[in-house]
């Protein structure tokens, strides 16, 4: 298998599938925790997207640069769950009135779901070089940010109606993508 083909197929297999699942996880948490409903002030948008951009890039790289073993996956999942639980607690403690710093921290923490996604996708897959894994991780992070931005724009432009459509459609696409991934050996 040529290096170019391996890169392209890896981007499709890992980065695209991973970003669809990651975005749906981000939106799912935003919906389930009611974070999205606490954003009613344009001054919250900067911290919100800054947290998502920084968190998506960092945690996506973590998911692709660590060893893809079951124990690492469990560790990353537990860490992400803990961060989500702490974020939700912070929101409850603030009575869902979130200042800029809290919004930044919560959106950064919820991006931690990207790490176990990358590791899960790579479990029992062939070895990839470090630069290639860094490329997959970067691409997953960038695509996740892009999808989040696109959906946020759509949601805002359409009167903040039916937020559930975003995570629903992305989860459906992610499921389809995972089925395709099953066929790729």
């Amino acid at each position: 298998m040529s290096s170019l083909w391996k890169s392209v197929s890896g981007l499709a297999v890992f980065s695209l599938t991973g970003s669809l699942f990651s975005t749906s996880l981000l939106l799912w948490f935003g919906y389930a925790s009611q974070l999205v409903y606490t954003i009613g002030d344009t001054r919250q948008l900067g911290p919100l997207f800054l947290g998502i951009i920084a968190g998506s890039m960092l945690f996506s790289l973590v998911g692709y640069l660590t060893r893809p073993t079951l124990s690492v996956l469990i560790l990353e999942t537990l860490a992400a769950s803990l961060l989500l639980a702490v974020s939700y607690s912070a929101m409850v403690l603030d009575s869902f009135v979130l200042g800029g710093t809290t919004v930044l921290a919560v959106s950064f923490a919820m991006s931690s779901a990207l790490a176990p996604v990358g590791t899960l996708l790579r479990l029992d897959r062939g070895p990839y070089s470090l630069p290639m894994r860094a490329m997959f991780g970067t691409a997953q992070g960038l695509l996740t940010i892009l999808f989040v931005f696109l959906y946020a724009y759509h949601y805002e432009a359409n009167g903040q109606l039916d937020f559930y459509v975003g995570p629903l459609v992305l989860l459906a696409l992610s499921l389809l993508s995972s089925m395709v991934l099953m066929r790729v050996r």
Partner: peptide, 15 residues
């Protein structure tokens, strides 16, 4: 939506 998330994780793990 949580069911769908769980289904996706299960599918990837099954793979």
């Amino acid at each position: 939506l949580t069911l769908l998330v769980a289904a996706n994780v299960a599918l990837l793990a099954w793979g």
